[in-house]
């Protein structure tokens, strides 16, 4: 298999990335990417599989900060005593992703960088030929909005919502060195280029500083497992009474509302969330219902805060 590459170090992975520039796909578990390949949405000639890089698979706490290696599987995260005890929100979010079998392969890094979805895009090539134009694929008109400019494909990472609500930072390695930035900064409000990543960068680690005072998590989907989210809300309140409410699945990128509880009202929160979510009819759940559920979920969260 001359197209499949399994480097054993980040350095090797980066050099392969440089070598196959513009023509490689990174496997970080691959549970989602394999479907993209089958549907010929991903036609890169080379696969760089990160699963052989041991240093990327770790769960550690140092000086009160949780460090997750990007290739830690979701199943390992769910099973970790440390995470269950101190970061139950991460465990809860990870547990809501896919199915038990997929979670044994799917990784936290892979889930954070899961590609945006749209019912008109995530289809086989034969299907797309039958439907015609798609801004993200071929053509100049969006099937969802009829527009010619913007693609509204949805970010569907459940763990992104949780980790953004926890104020997580990420470590990226590039041939030029290491950079760290808030997780929320790698998402762009664009359905086509949804990740703000430099060329040849590899997400290596996620660091979670906050152990929140309160947390809340809920995911909307038709079935109790397997389905990608139609709306995920993860919320925390830290010891300084800062609320971080992150919504995902309803816009091109996760939507964070961050505000002190002293000034936050339910109305104000819902208004901000609804205003920032560019929700369009690109999921199998009806648009009107998904919008309504933003209000319902935020209300449920708000009520839970008051009870505590």
């Amino acid at each position: 298999m001359d197209y499949y590459h399994s480097p054993s170090s980040i350095k090797d992975a980066l050099s392969m990335a440089g070598k196959f520039s513009g023509n490689y796909t990174i496997f970080a578990g691959g549970t989602d990417i394999q479907i993209y390949r089958k549907q010929q949405l991903d036609t890169n000639e080379h696969i760089i599989d990160l699963s052989g890089i041991d240093e990327l698979n770790s769960i550690a706490t140092k000086e009160g900060i949780l460090h997750l290696g990007a290739m830690t599987t979701l199943d390992e995260i769910i099973s970790s005593d440390e995470i269950q005890l101190h970061y139950p929100l991460i465990a809860e979010a990870a547990k809501s992703v896919a199915t038990p079998v997929l979670r044994k392969t799917a990784t936290i890094g892979g889930n954070l960088l899961v590609k945006n979805r749209c019912v008109f895009y995530n289809q086989s090539q034969a299907w797309r030929n039958g439907m015609g134009s798609c801004l993200r694929d071929v053509g100049t008109i969006c099937q969802v909005t009829g527009g010619k400019k913007d693609c509204y494909s949805r970010n569907v990472s459940d763990t992104a919502a949780a980790l953004i609500a926890l104020g997580a930072e990420i470590t990226l390695m590039t041939p030029d060195g290491i950079t760290q930035k808030p997780l929320k900064d790698i998402y762009l409000p664009c359905g086509i280029k949804f990740h703000n990543l430099e060329e040849h960068s590899i997400l290596t680690q996620i660091s979670v500083p906050i152990k929140p005072k309160k947390w809340w998590y809920k995911k909307l989907r038709l079935r109790k497992t397997l389905d990608f989210t139609s709306l995920t809300v993860a919320a925390t309140v830290d010891i300084n009474s800062i609320a971080r409410v992150c919504l995902n699945g309803v816009s091109m990128s996760p939507i964070l509302v961050e505000q002190t509880m002293d000034t936050l009202t339910q109305e104000n929160l819902t208004r901000q969330a609804r205003k920032n979510c560019k929700t369009v009819d690109n999921d199998l759940m009806p648009l009107k219902y998904r919008r309504e559920m933003i209000n319902v979920f935020l209300e449920e969260w708000w009520d839970s805060i008051e009870i505590i």
């Binding site: 199915t99 019912v119 289809q123 299907w127 039958g130 439907m131 099937q143 038709l222 079935r223 109790k224 497992t225 397997l226 389905d227 199998l284």
Partner: peptide, 27 residues
Amino acid sequence: MSEELRYKNGQQMNANFFDYRIPSSLD
């Protein structure tokens, strides 16, 4: 509760086991 063949302009929208929602064991 969940299964339906959906169409747009005569084209099936959910011609796969992911989007055609058969109840899981949890459901």
